[in-house]
Design a protein around this nucleic acid. Sequence first.
DNA 1: TGCTAGCATTACGTTTACGTTAAGGTTAAA
DNA 2: TTTAACCTTAACGTAAACGTAATGCTAGCA
Lengths: 134, 134
Amino acid sequence: MTTTFTISDLAAEFGITIRAIRHYEDKGLLCPRREGTNRVFSNRDRVRLKLALRGKRLGFSLAEIREMFNLYDLARDEQLLLQEFLVKLERRRLLLEQQREDIEVMLNEIAFFDSQCRKLLADKDATGKEPANA
Amino acid sequence: MTTTFTISDLAAEFGITIRAIRHYEDKGLLCPRREGTNRVFSNRDRVRLKLALRGKRLGFSLAEIREMFNLYDLARDEQLLLQEFLVKLERRRLLLEQQREDIEVMLNEIAFFDSQCRKLLADKDATGKEPANA
DNA sequence: TGCTAGCATTACGTTTACGTTAAGGTTAAA
DNA sequence: TTTAACCTTAACGTAAACGTAATGCTAGCA
């Protein structure tokens, strides 16, 4: 059993447009088979798309995502200088950890604002039921 | 004592171009004082710039960052519908938690590739010292 | 006095990531 | 048979985030 997908299958599943998927193919992120002129996406394509969208959510460009794919493929083929690959992995790791830190900071800020708001709302509720100058 | 900064001070400190800072002002992220025609940045401006860059690292657009600033200001002035603010905070929180999850996944992948590479390198080292067909 | 450094504005150029027609081929139901 | 729902390529449009001139003011200094 080999599952395949049409372009609109994937578009629907991931909540993106058909145009976007075609664009990702243009940029070398996907390379679906063809049946006649129509694209036929494999499970591997689906996984790639998923990875690409994850990369996008983290602010990576399509070019960067593509480079990552290439690196992974090359690493799998053992045709790349492994040392070089390790260096690139390390770079990406540092970036991600910076992002993780950024996220923690922002989540803390949000929590702070949230609690402040709830306090204000509670106050308003209270003064709303009592006379205003209590 | 009130610290102030020139545009190139901030550019140097944050490793960005002067042009970028001016652009952020155009987009309403910063509003430095003027002395004659020259911009004079306060500590508040500096903090805003820092926040903006953090937002950028997480992939937010300048417009989104600006909206966050506006929300914060409004919240401080208590002139916003607090409920609405809470909803927006919650949205952003969900996004950030999605990103956090994405980061964890990618870091795990990186760790995996890293260990694979190191294994391969160790093997190569070993076979490099012994005859190739060992 | 003329040069250099640092600031400014205006405005056009560029890259990225698609959106949006336009124009058409294929298949299936009405 | 025509209408609808899929798919295709080609190509122009657009918003964002600056880069990159081009031009000009001003202050210090050899």
